[in-house]
Design a protein around this nucleic acid. Structure first.
Lengths: 203, 203
DNA sequence: CACATTAACTACCGCTCGGTAGTAAAACGT
DNA sequence: ACGTTTTACTACCGAGCGGTAGTTAATGTG
């Protein structure tokens, strides 16, 4: 975004930094942090090891960079989803429908990189534990706003909204594990249906 | 259970096999499979490496043994919980209360070993993926029966029960991640409260 | 055409990993 | 006492790990 092509002197890169980061992200996403070796990253990207180090730093630094990048993109995606979803219960339904579409195909099938990483590294973490705190907080606030909108003004109640938000967050975490566990489209569908049925009781 | 002390000849073990397995289980539980090295296992148990290998086989075989042992114990625990919980919505509430107690202190705070392992190894798995399929199926059936009991006979509906069971399973998965993510007692409490509120709508 | 600068590439390092051979020690039956 | 069996313990292996020094190849600038 800022001065990407203000290269001054010296030999230019033979690879596209963003494209490489995309590939490395996919690898970490699929295999997890500790199960992905530098050799794997080299093979996947075609970039030599020293170039990876000189460009992105150590494996830990690289992963931190990738996680940041991922979180930024994901938050943008969620924002768009929430935005497109519109207000009310129908909005939540629409949100879940989009989630369904994302989970059964493409990027969503490996779960959420942040959730996976947190789970994997929470027992031994160097500092990744609290990495996604801000992200989680922001996501929770947006979801809460969406849920709040859906409640009739008369019966609106903060603690109820909080509970529903907690349930929704927990549901999404569980869904992440379900998907990553290799659930097929039908199973994912049933789980989302179940949540939609629950959301309907919020009318 | 079968012939544990029919030792015939040779030097007797200096360590208690079950006690050691308990310690190793705790270690795998907390740190995950790939983050736990053989050296860690040696340090934690006080048993020399070769003795571990001669007694339990390779790391993979040891982990398989530990996972089996864990699943057996856990299923027994869940059975007792469901049994003590009693029938109806109140039973589900009681079940969630017991879950709450287990999660905030003692063994439950590292989540479920099976769930953790599945998540960790699903991207690179040797054969652990389907290891817990039977367990999950059985747990699901017991939960389903509990939920089914809670429904008024008149309105009982198979697909509704299935949906609720799916939701409950997903909820427990999410709760696992929440706990493992380092949530404090309050947060865990709120999430369980949220589920209990949902269960109340099933009356 | 030098020269400085940056990147690509080769070769290597120390360390930890999971796993094993070989030996010493403690129990048994005869 | 003796051989047998089983375990405890030491020492080690090859492989893979994350990470780096040093050289060669491109580029822009003077």
């Amino acid at each position: 975004m800022s001065g990407t092509n203000m290269r001054s002197r010296g030999r230019p890169r033979l690879f596209d930094e963003d494209a490489v980061l995309d590939e490395l992200t996919a690898l970490f996403w699929r295999k997890g942090y500790s199960q992905t070796s530098m050799a794997d990253l080299v093979d996947a990207s075609g970039v030599h090891k020293s170039s990876l180090y000189s460009t992105f730093g150590t494996k830990e630094e690289l992963f931190a960079k990738i996680l940041q990048r991922y979180l930024a993109a994901r938050m943008g995606m969620f924002s768009k989803l929430v935005e497109q979803a519109g207000p009310g219960i129908d909005g939540i339904h629409a949100f879940l429908e989009m989630l369904r579409g994302d989970l059964v195909s493409g990027t969503g099938q490996w779960g959420c990189l942040l959730v996976n990483s947190s789970s994997e590294l929470s027992g031994t973490a160097p500092g990744f534990e609290n990495f996604g705190v801000a992200f989680r907080k922001e996501l929770r606030e947006r979801l809460r706003a969406l849920i709040r909108q859906a409640e009739p003004e008369v019966t609106a109640n903060n603690s109820v909204t909080d509970q529903r938000t907690d349930l929704f967050m927990t549901f999404m975490l569980g869904l992440n594990l379900t998907v990553r566990g290799g659930a097929d489209e039908n199973e994912i569908g049933r789980v989302i249906d179940a949540m939609q049925a629950t959301v309907d009781t919020w009318r």
